[in-house]
Amino acid sequence: MAQENVEFPITGKITSVNVSQGSKVEEGDILCLLESMKMENPILAPVSGTVTKLELSVGQVVEVGNLVAIIEY
């Protein structure tokens, strides 16, 4: 199975985590919401598959390049 590492494209604070480890996601589903530059930015799933790794919590501050999730497809 191929897997894809999803990384944060901007620095910000997580305001909600919408999926958890083991969730099935479709391409374009919202993985989590990130507050950055006074805006809420959704981070979307780039592929359809299963989330095999996701370790995020609300309020966590993340940097560019940090891991959002690993999706297996």
Binding site: P9, G28, S36, M39, N41
Partner: peptide, 22 residues
């Protein structure tokens, strides 16, 4: 940042990998 936000949103719709905000 309204215009940048519009571009960001449309970019994500077209390609969920894209993050055009910055």
């Amino acid at each position: 940042p309204m215009a940048a936000r519009v571009v960001q949103k449309m970019g994500q719709q077209a390609n969920p990998r894209n993050f055009l905000l910055m």
